[in-house]
């Protein structure tokens, strides 16, 4: 498995799994506008997943399609961040997870827009324009809910405390990331941390939220070691293709 294929799977699987999690809100959000916004965010993310996994399949050259990668791999073959497979819990958790990811994704896409691989740059330039709307929305909502009522503040702080140990994985380079950064295909992940922290600190200050002090970071998603939650998610997401192999419409 080449570093390029692995790196593309990480981008594709992270957007795919987050898309599925966000789509679980369809028909259940606390307000109609939020329901629509979440569904549209999920749709954008699945579009990005299609592009990343499509390129991953092309790079692999084994005759697999983006759909094959999405629907016919099992848990240990997925390379998404652990953060995005965490359950939705409540609206506050969903928005906090989205904000932590959106801030990372915005920075990542800006760097990838200048990737030495033209195919990656083209996807990133396209995705960055859509992701800008996600980044703005999740930050606004974290501020509104964090600096909202006693109840909404408590829920946002509890969401932040719960997700904080999953933040570090987005910035921790392993040999795959290092190889891709050496060739200018990906940015140096550690270099994204300072601008991410700067923006997140501003958001949390406005939201009156306390950033946890712990630097502990769960690892494993990028190498296929997942929490139990991913398997449950895949049983729902992949059910149709597993029950009726090759089904189309």
């Amino acid at each position: 498995m080449t570093a390029l294929f692995e790196g593309l799977l990480r981008l594709g699987d992270t957007t795919l799994i987050l898309s599925h999690r966000v789509s679980e809100w369809c028909g259940h959000a606390p307000a109609l506008e939020e329901d629509i916004a979440l569904a549209n965010t999920a749709l954008d993310l699945i579009g990005q997943a299609q592009m990343w996994l499509g390129l991953a399949a092309e790079v692999e050259g084994a005759g697999r399609s983006a759909d094959d990668l999405a629907y016919l791999r099992d848990v240990w073959e997925f390379r998404n961040f652990l953060l995005v497979e965490r359950p939705n819990v409540d609206f506050g958790h969903t928005i906090m997870r989205q904000c932590l990811f959106d801030q990372w994704n915005g920075l990542m896409l800006n760097h990838l827009s200048g990737s030495t691989d033209d195919r990656i740059a083209a996807i990133a330039q396209k995705a960055a324009k859509e992701a800008a709307y996600h980044t703005e929305r999740s930050a606004d909502l974290v501020i509104a809910l964090g600096d909202g009522t006693k109840e909404s503040h408590a829920r946002m702080q509890s969401a932040l405390d719960a997700f904080w140990p999953y933040v570090g994985e987005m910035f921790t380079a392993d040999p795959v990331d290092t190889e891709l950064a050496r060739d200018g295909v990906f940015p140096d992940l550690a270099s994204l941390r300072a601008p991410w922290d700067a923006r997140i600190n501003e958001i949390f200050a406005s939201a009156t939220l306390h950033k946890p002090d712990s630097a502990f970071a769960h690892q494993g998603g990028k190498s296929g070691k997942h929490t139990e939650h991913l398997g449950h998610l895949l049983t729902t997401m992949q059910w149709l293709q597993r029950a009726y192999p090759g089904a189309t419409w």
Binding site: E33, I36, A37, E130
Partner: peptide
Amino acid sequence: RISQFGSTP
């Protein structure tokens, strides 16, 4: 503005 997200993306 009611919402930045509407009936289509």
